[in-house]
């Protein structure tokens, strides 16, 4: 007997292809899971309108869950994704991976994920992916990615 908690647990196996350590559950893009006897409906919300990873994620979920039952994955625009939906666990994983996790407001100082210094500066608001900005630490001099505050 499959219960909804099992599905959520399975979904933690699906990672964001652009941040391969972070699960889509911790990224906060799984907005709902419905289980109706053997039929599973998963709704996911894009981080940015342009997120090119959505179709890959959709295929991954379908592949993984089709072993359990019939699967439908819907990409929906509502509820709106914001960076506040990233879980505390997700933020910890991001930091360990070398990406500074998003602050909860735009005015907070960005922390270096390597030496924890807040003495950092913005190099560019546009980085290697739509969701990241490019920063540099003035203390340890390392450049790093910052997961942008998006809300």
């Amino acid at each position: 007997m499959v219960v909804i908690e099992d599905i959520w647990k399975e979904l933690e196996e699906v990672k964001d292809p652009e941040i391969p350590v972070l699960s889509i559950v911790d990224l906060g893009i799984v907005s709902s899971v419905q289980l109706d006897s053997t039929r599973i409906v998963v709704q996911i919300i894009p981080t940015y309108t342009s997120c090119p990873a959505m179709n890959v994620i959709k295929n991954e979920i379908t592949k993984l869950l089709s072993e359990i039952g019939e699967v439908e994955v819907k990409i929906v625009l509502s509820p709106k994704w914001t960076s506040d939906l990233i879980t505390e666990k997700g933020k910890k994983i991001l930091k360990e991976y070398g990406i500074s996790p998003p602050n909860s407001d735009f005015n907070q100082e960005v922390e270096c994920p390597r030496c924890n210094s807040k003495d950092t500066f913005l190099v560019s608001n546009f980085g290697s992916t739509a969701c990241k900005a490019h920063y540099k630490c003035k203390q340890c001099l390392e450049p790093f990615d910052y997961f942008k505050c998006h809300k």
């Binding site: 940015y48 309108t49 342009s50 560019s124 608001n125 980085g127 739509a130 490019h134």
Partner: peptide, 17 residues
């Protein structure tokens, strides 16, 4: 380089919309 990346990020957002 940073501006190249910024402009293509813009482009990606607009095509995504």
């Amino acid at each position: 380089l940073e501006e190249d990346i910024a402009l293509t990020n813009f482009a990606l957002d607009f095509i995504g919309q």
